[in-house]
Design a protein around this nucleic acid. Structure first.
Lengths: 141, 141
DNA sequence: AATATGCATTCAGAAATCAGAATATATCGT
DNA sequence: ACGATATATTCTGATTTCTGAATGCATATT
């Protein structure tokens, strides 16, 4: 699983490495995913719910982020949890936002996607909340 | 000149703005150009000489950087000098390099393109040096 | 006005990206 | 083993990016 087919070996210079990194960041949904991950690891179903995108689509974008080394994944039962691969990525997002703000002459901010509406997916991290809200009668445990 | 045809108005959210910025940075030659500009403004012929690329190619990449708002241009006679649009862009490059280094587990550095060989183009900023080296007899002034 | 120089734009084919649809895989509960 | 759930991958056509070649435009010089 997660086989990285393309072998760049070390044929690339620093500029090309950097370019590949920036390319992976050059997509609004991927940026949204990273923004969510800044708050902590999240499973695919959570991202699916928060971003309001189809599962396959989320997985595709996660693959790009994985290939770029931006995120790491960890399987726990049926769920796969993703996290930022390094703290420096969070700092990079801040710098990028600062630059974008300066360029636009306007203070941009990355509002958490789907702000407001409470997100309930079926992962073990979300379920404890929703179980008591959606199930009638005696809780399952 | 420099007509920005596409009108994004304000239909874009912050994530899309950021994505567009990152996309513009997702190209090794464009990153090299920005790296040169960190040392100060440079004309096209200078970039051409430093990067060893054809003029039209440099101009094309500069157009992308202009469209993204990353650089500004200033005409002086026959030369057009480009500079970074904002200091924050320099900081962004540093952050990106730090993140890329962390991801690769290797300390990357952006060696100035064409390091070593002295660059002499025909712009007024380069000519003062070469005049006395290439012209025989009495200096022109 | 004619020419040269520096820079910008357009054009075109190849390659890469985008995103929806369908399908495959892995794990869990029964 | 079977079905259900969570996630991953493949396929495909539309769009975009990439980059070389050719051309256009502005400014300076004569």
């Amino acid at each position: 699983m997660h086989i990285q087919v393309i072998e760049y070996g070390d044929l690339m210079d620093s500029y090309s490495h950097l370019a590949r990194l920036m390319k992976a960041l050059g997509h609004p949904v991927r940026l949204q995913i990273l923004q969510v991950l800044r708050e902590g690891e999240a499973c695919v179903c959570h991202l699916e719910a928060v971003l309001g995108q189809r599962q396959a689509y989320i997985s595709q974008q996660l693959m790009r982020l994985r290939d770029a080394g931006l995120v790491t994944d960890r399987r726990e039962g049926m769920n796969v949890f993703y996290s930022l691969a390094d703290e420096s990525i969070s700092a990079l997002l801040d710098s990028a936002l600062a630059a974008a703000s300066a360029i636009r002459g306007e203070n941009l901010s990355l509002a958490p996607p789907s702000a407001g509406n409470p997100v309930t997916c079926s992962c073990p991290k979300c379920r404890p909340v929703s179980v008591f809200q959606t199930q009638e009668g005696a809780p399952t445990r």
